[in-house]
């Protein structure tokens, strides 16, 4: 049964006034509209426009959060500008990513990359995390550059490169220290291991073995490197015969 857009007027009026103390019952109509929008392009466009309208100005954090949840589901490139405007706002950045990370349009990835160059601290880690989830190849150069900066952000960048597991990501990781202090070293190791697994899965055994062997060699004589040695040894064995590395 077609969904009548006029039925959204009252729920959106309620959403504009919604915070964590208001009655959320009217929002269920919007929930239903988001489902119906899958088969109704006009409804989807209307709903998306209304939800984007919540993201600017007066509505509460709770209302914006709700709108982001729905845009995660039905958002398109048309939502990106409104969502991108929230990426630098510490209260709303995560929920903007909650939508942008899952919107397949390339404009969403571009917005996350742009924001990565503009935000710092935890918000930057958020952008890195979302770009990694999208396996956004275009962000590899920016992630590679971050390996040399703040250790916490560098660790997130290393993890992201591992998630991408591309030759470019592996090349970027080559210059990162697998035994750097804190979480950075562990992240670099994990990322290199992930890249090696990708090579092995692609049948590029010699290259995978090279990654494992380099880690094994680097771990020799290093204190507290037993997890690295164990993982790299398992990898070398897997390059010979996968059954040798099975638990």
């Amino acid at each position: 049964m077609p969904f009548d857009p006029a039925t959204l007027d009252a729920p959106f009026a309620a959403l504009k006034a919604y915070d964590w103390t208001a009655d959320a019952a009217p929002l269920k109509t919007i929930d239903q509209a988001a489902i119906a929008a899958h088969a109704d392009a006009a409804l989807r466009a209307d709903l998306e426009k209304r939800l984007c309208g919540i993201l600017g100005g007066g509505p509460s954090r709770a209302a914006k959060e709700y709108a982001c949840r729905k845009l995660m589901m039905i958002g398109t490139a048309a939502s990106v500008p409104a969502l991108a405007a929230l990426l630098g706002d510490k209260d709303n950045s995560h929920m903007a990513r909650f939508a942008l990370e899952r919107i397949g349009a390339p404009e969403a990835a571009a917005a996350l990359r742009t924001a990565l160059g503009e935000v710092s601290g935890d918000l930057a880690i958020g952008m890195i995390s979302s770009l990694a989830a999208r396996r956004d190849a275009a962000s590899v150069p920016a992630l590679a550059a971050l390996l040399q900066g703040d250790a916490t952000i560098a660790a997130a960048a290393a993890e992201a490169l591992g998630r991408m597991s591309s030759p470019e990501a592996l090349a970027a990781l080559a210059s990162a220290d697998p035994f750097a202090a804190g979480g950075l070293g562990r992240a670099v190791v994990d990322a290199r291991l992930a890249c090696a697994e990708g090579l092995l899965a692609a049948g590029r055994r010699a290259e995978a073995r090279g990654v494992y062997q380099a880690l094994l060699d680097a771990a020799k004589g290093k204190p507290a490197a037993k997890e690295v040695e164990l993982a790299a040894t398992r990898g070398v064995l897997a390059c010979v015969d996968a059954s040798l590395a099975a638990l």
Binding site: M73, F98, L100, I125, I128, A194
Partner: peptide
């Protein structure tokens, strides 16, 4: 496919 994963609140990540 959008429901396969969720963006995690910073600074938490899943590699």
């Amino acid at each position: 496919n959008r429901f396969i994963d969720r963006a995690r609140r910073e600074p938490w990540t899943l590699s």
